[in-house]
Amino acid sequence: MAAAVATLLLGLSACGSPDGSDGSTTASDGAEGAFPAKVATKFGEVTVDEKPKRVVALGWGDAETVLALGGQPVGASDWLAFGGEGVGPWAKDRYDKSPQLIGTMEPEYEKIAALRPDLILDTKSSGDRTRHDTLSKIAPTVGVPEGGDQYMISWEKQTEMVAAALGVPDKGAKLIAETEKKFAAAVKANPGFKDSTITLGSRTSEGYGAYVGGTGRVDFAERLGFENNPAVEAKAGDSFTVPVSKENLDLLDADLVVMEPIGVPAASISDDPLYQAVPAVKAGHSLVFDDQGISQAFATDSVLSVSYALDKVVPLFAQKLK
């Protein structure tokens, strides 16, 4: 694969640099920004010499973070299979021109190279070295931060890194501050969240699981004052979830249980007799997302989606915790 990319890159370099006629778009609006920009990553410091004009955003939520900062990715990964422009309703109508959609777990390197990017963003991804090295042969690549393997990066850190790479750190700081104010307002309006335990889980075709600290869903709840289920945390390993067998669903029990169906109907959770037997569920303190938009916002954990989730999810939490 790397050899194929190298061959394609040689061919592209022979064609010269792209100009505005081929759909080139700027990564940030306004002034030229703070360049050269330096961004610290797990793989070392990455330097962006000048304002990027052709950004490919591959990490989970990277594209909508660029959009939030006024940029226009020419290529992007659609992690939740939104289709169309590859973003959720919270980022609707932010593109001037639809991006080229790129594969997620296995990026389509030739397709990326053909876009002639001058910056690749992969801040929320697996943290795989081979993936990073291959992308870096195409263009400067801002990968995961130290400790950010397996998608464990907060929306704040993602916004900070993307803003730095685009040369708009002040705009990133402003977005972060505005979102933190929304969290603070939600905390103030819901004092009952403080110190209440919460389980954030899912059911897929492979079974039940619960999310551990360091993941977006748990981070969202902890910012509101919740404590992640201690029994789940005790089983935490290197993955962002712990499996929960049907025979041990009581592990999910907490003051509030929030479940997300992934690739299965919501009824496969809510109608499961074993799930219904969990004490919190029996007491009515359970929430199963049956609205795909809310579920996806909660899962994406970008600076745009968390704001949307605060508006949509917090009232549901409050209702079920009573």
Results as ranks from 00 to 15, higher is better:
Met1Trp: 00
Ala4Glu: 12
Ala6Asn: 03
Leu8Val: 11
Ser17Phe: 00
Asp19Val: 09
Asp22Thr: 15
Ala34Asp: 10
Phe35Asp: 03
Gly44Ser: 02
Val48Ala: 07
Asp49Leu: 06
Val56Thr: 04
Leu69Asn: 11
Gly71Lys: 07
Gln72Arg: 10
Ser77Gly: 01
Gly83Tyr: 09
Gly84Met: 03
Gly84His: 08
Glu85Ser: 11
Glu85Ala: 15
Trp90Cys: 00
Ala91Cys: 07
Tyr95Met: 05
Tyr95Arg: 03
Asp96Gly: 13
Gln100Lys: 13
Ile102Lys: 01
Ile120Thr: 03
Ser126Thr: 15
Gly127Phe: 00
Arg131Lys: 10
Arg131Leu: 05
Ile138Ala: 06
Glu160Tyr: 00
Ala163Ser: 09
Lys174Ser: 10
Phe183Trp: 06
Ser196Asn: 12
Ser196Gly: 06
Leu200Gln: 06
Gly207Asn: 09
Val212Ala: 05
Arg217Pro: 08
Val218Ala: 07
Asp219Ala: 13
Phe220Val: 09
Glu227Met: 02
Val232Phe: 02
Ala236Tyr: 03
Pro243His: 08
Pro243Ile: 11
Ile262Ala: 10
Val264Asn: 05
Val264Glu: 05
Ser268Arg: 09
Tyr275Glu: 03
Val281Thr: 08
Lys282Arg: 14
His285Gly: 11
Phe289Thr: 11
Thr300Ile: 14
Ser302Gln: 05
Leu304Phe: 01
Val314Arg: 05
Pro315Tyr: 11
Leu316Trp: 07
Gln319Leu: 10
